[in-house]
Amino acid sequence: MTMDYKKYDIFSPMVFVLLVIIYLMFSEIAFHYHLHKLIGVDLYTIGVIFLGILFYIIGTALSNYFLKNKEITINTGKTDKIFSERLVLSLVIIGILLQIVNLIYLGGIPLFSGYLKAHAATRIWLLSYLIFLPSINILIAKYDNKKYYLLFILGLLLFVSTGYRTTAMAIVISVLITTYYTKDLPWKYLILSIIAIFILLVVVGYIAVKSIEWQTWTSTPIELLFYRAGYTLQVLDHAAFLQGSTHGQLLYNTLMGFFKSSDPRVIVGSTTLGYAHSTTSTIFGPALLDFGLYAMLLQMIILGFIMNLIYKVQINVRSIFIGLYAILLAHLIIWIETGPTDLVVFLFYLISIIFLIYLVNIKKVGNK
């Protein structure tokens, strides 16, 4: 049995809404069993979350309105010239080599050491990720060669070894989405892939936490998964009642991430918990802390608009935009927990928009 993509597209931008609701269910399990003394969140915070979801949906609707009665085409000549197979393959290899250099520079495997992990996100790591992730997705999306999946596996293993769960998940989720749109995957393979991603999420997260020398955890891997959801939602609960407290520091430190070594998530922890601790506050938290509710709602409208716009483009022209959409959707899914505090993800959005403007033609075809 093969997928009927036209009938039911499970990786449309609306999957974000479903996953936020699932995340809330995970956190409710943590609250119900009081994992590590979690107590739950205020009803106001739940209302803020659903407002954010509503404005995300509004953003997708606005992009549909923008594209109404318009034809979307791609400049094939420019695309083939810029993204030749040899060039994209070379970039993938460069990204892999940079990550190897980063691990040699660190002198060990950060996945098994909290001290090494604290220093693993070097500028070399950032450059490696910035090059590897779009290159491997574009390579798989544009060129049909099974050998390229070996490069994906090699790159994944290298990024897993850094101990950062989010980058490993972004790589594997984005490649799954790219494969979903480029191959006629049977349902069973798609389900097995999702299960494998879930297992990877649990295992890498658990190993990374257990390897932090100054922390002691007694939870099982599954309990830890539910606990993280509940804990992050409680941080959001603090943020919902501390709106505007950081006065734009989170956004500034995120955008200056290449030049400054400060972690925006430490600011989140300091503001919401009262002590310096790198923590996450869901996709809604940073904007609330920086500028308040209206800023968060504006953020969600913009995200909904851009995600649906890139989605419609990739559905119509395919090519490299399959890979670009896969990257953005993978990070949007991850942002449900971590929040938009990563410079590299903002750069992916910027790169996608630049390519859209340069390579895609959107023309009105008249009223119908």
Rank of each mutant, 00 (worst) to 15 (best):
G163T: 06
V172Q: 13
V209A: 12
L130M: 12
F198A: 12
I173H: 05
K188W: 15
N137C: 12
S128Q: 07
D144F: 15
L192H: 05
T166K: 13
T178K: 09
A208S: 14
T182M: 12
A141E: 13
T167K: 03
Y149V: 11
T182K: 14
L158C: 11
F152G: 11
A196L: 14
A141C: 12
Y206T: 10
L192K: 05
T182Y: 15
L156V: 00
L185E: 10
E213D: 13
P186D: 06
S135K: 08
T178Q: 08
E213K: 14
L126M: 15
S135Y: 06
A168G: 03
F198R: 03
S174T: 11
T179I: 07
I153A: 08
L157N: 07
F159D: 09
I138P: 15
L133D: 04
R123Q: 07
L201R: 06
K210D: 04
L185M: 15
L157T: 08
R123C: 04
A170Q: 10
K188I: 14
K210H: 10
W125H: 12
I207E: 00
W217F: 13
L126F: 14
S161T: 00
F132D: 03
I138N: 12
K146L: 08
L133F: 10
L176K: 01
S174L: 09
S219G: 06
Y180Q: 02
T166P: 04
I171R: 05
L157Q: 08
I191C: 07
I171T: 05
M169L: 15
W125D: 10
T218S: 07
W125S: 11
I197D: 00
F152H: 11
Y149F: 13
F132M: 06
L126C: 07
L190M: 09
K183L: 13
I173N: 11
N137R: 12
I124E: 04
T182D: 09
L126Q: 07
G155H: 03
G163R: 08
R165C: 00
I195T: 03
I194M: 02
I140C: 09
S219H: 08
I153C: 07
A168T: 04
G205Y: 01
T218F: 13
A168W: 00
L139V: 04
F132C: 08
A168S: 15
A168D: 02
A208I: 03
V203E: 00
T218I: 05
K146M: 13
L133M: 15
T216P: 00
K142I: 04
I131E: 04
L156R: 01
I131L: 10
A141K: 12
V160W: 01
K210T: 12
E213P: 15
A170G: 09
L133R: 08
I195W: 01
T182R: 15
S135R: 05
I138H: 14
L154A: 12
F132R: 07
Y181L: 15
D184N: 13
P134D: 08
T218V: 07
V160P: 07
L200C: 11
I171Y: 02
L133P: 02
T167R: 01
G155Q: 04
Q215Y: 05
A168P: 02
P186W: 02
S193E: 07
L192Q: 12
I131Q: 03
Y149S: 13
L185W: 10
A208G: 04
T167L: 08
A196C: 09
I153R: 03
D144N: 13
